[in-house]
Design a protein around this nucleic acid. Structure first.
Length: 153
DNA sequence: GCCAACGTTGGC
DNA sequence: GCCAACGTTGGC
């Protein structure tokens, strides 16, 4: 089992919105970065644990916990002409973009960036790296453990 | 295949 | 709203 951090904009799909959904599950549509896509397609398995991260908002940080609920499959928005995520170069026969389903398991207190940066145990987290923009990043098991056992107790 | 120009991300 | 960082595009 692997651990991940997945960014989302709370104004679009935040932790509260996902917890309000049927089965507390959402399809993680809209990823248009090859590296992030490859993580979903090649490495994510059902049951993988996820840090649910709020980005591009007033208080960016970890806002909840989640898990992968369904293996990667074609992202429906790439075929929707009206969607900003429409990709004219993608076809149903040869889809370019995929997403997994994510089930939120709990809302946590907001662990903001300054707090994350204050712990040497977390200083190597990809999300904290200078210039990082990747919306899906692997999380080290020790980092996951530290966040769960030290920051969320 | 190089790389300048351009577009996007996302913290601040 | 600014802008640093980074990814993508496309001319050559």
């Amino acid at each position: 089992m692997r651990y991940w951090l997945m960014k989302t904009e709370p104004g679009v799909v935040g932790i509260d919105a996902v917890l309000a959904m049927p089965m507390q599950t959402v399809d993680w549509w809209g990823v248009r970065n090859y590296q992030a896509r490859n993580f979903m397609r090649d490495q994510m398995r059902v049951g993988d644990k996820v840090l649910f991260y709020h980005s591009n908002c007033k208080e960016p940080g970890i806002a909840g916990l989640a898990e992968v609920a369904k293996l990667a499959y074609p992202d429906r928005t790439q075929f929707d002409r009206k969607s900003p995520y429409f990709d004219p170069k993608s076809t149903p026969e040869n889809p370019r973009w995929v997403n997994v389903d994510v089930r939120a398991t709990k809302k946590t207190r907001l662990i903001g960036l300054p707090e994350l940066r204050s712990h040497p145990e977390l200083e190597r987290m990809r999300v904290l790296a200078r210039g990082n923009r990747l919306s899906i990043t692997p999380v080290d098991p020790a980092e996951w453990e530290f966040i769960i056992k030290r920051l969320l107790k």
